[in-house]
């Protein structure tokens, strides 16, 4: 279980997260929805250790993560597919995936997981020798997710996997997220602007606004909530 308590993060003088508390139970898909600049990416980056928190705690099981370096957090089993995908543009698809397994030493396990990623995203297998930067947006997103999976994490952090890709691909990618959760039992924390899709696959959801959690609850309840509908789902 990933547990965040009263987390404060600021960029210089500007407070980005003002006391976030949130928990992600094992094997669940939890989503965090919110508008641009609400602090979603800041939260994920802080969990991964890429940003330092001012106060509060992030714990995974018994270990406290706020004092850990990013590579230690990866080693503890948290992998992130970052916003904007951040593919290694000059490395091939294969090399990108191998980078995901950078801290692993079990060659056999890496090969098995590579096969799994390829079976899930056959497109990546077709393009395994191609440079990451030459892939389309959707393919890069698949690669980013695949790369995160390669570290064999306990918890997968996904930062806006629907950003900038074709609607039909968004559907495919969300299906794959459900698949990963279902088949591998992997815990997923999904950050999204596309609240409709995110609440569709998550069991639990949080709504973040200007650095604070303003609503939380079961995903289906949130999806039906009038406030959420008006703000994030559009009045359908």
């Amino acid at each position: 279980m990933l547990e965040i308590k009263d987390l404060h993060v600021s960029y210089g003088q500007i407070a980005a997260l003002k006391g976030i508390s949130l928990s992600v139970p094992d094997h669940a898909i939890v989503t965090l929805i919110g508008a641009n600049g609400a602090g979603k990416t800041t939260l994920l980056r802080t969990i991964s250790g890429l940003l330092k928190s001012k106060s509060g705690s992030i714990s995974l099981g018994d270990s406290e993560l706020t004092k850990c370096a990013p590579h230690e957090i990866v080693a503890k089993g948290i992998a992130q597919s970052p916003e904007g995908r951040m593919i290694f543009a000059n490395l091939t698809v294969m090399e990108n995936l191998k980078m995901g397994a950078f801290l692993r030493k079990d060659t056999d396990g890496i090969a098995t997981d590579m096969e799994y990623v390829f079976s899930m995203f056959p497109r990546l297998k077709e393009r395994h020798a191609q440079q990451g930067g030459t892939l389309s947006g959707g393919e890069q997103q698949m690669l980013a997710i695949g790369r995160a999976l390669m570290s064999k994490p306990k918890i997968l952090l996904l930062d806006e996997p629907s950003l900038g890709i074709a609607p039909i691909l968004v559907r495919t990618i969300f299906q794959k997220i459900v698949e990963i959760n279902h088949n591998l039992g992997m815990t997923v924390l999904l950050v999204e602007q596309n609240a409709h899709m995110a609440l569709g696959i998550a069991s639990h959801g949080y709504v973040i606004e200007t650095g604070k959690i303003v609503l939380e609850g079961e995903a289906s309840w949130l999806a039906a909530n009038e406030e959420v509908k008006k703000a994030y789902l559009g009045s359908v």
Binding site: S48, H71, P82, F88, L91, E95, M99, G132
Partner: peptide, 20 residues
Amino acid sequence: GRGFLAVRDDEVAAEAMGVH
């Protein structure tokens, strides 16, 4: 050695992959 290339291509992503 791929760690060096990863740092060049995207430092934040490299860090997120566990590269110091």
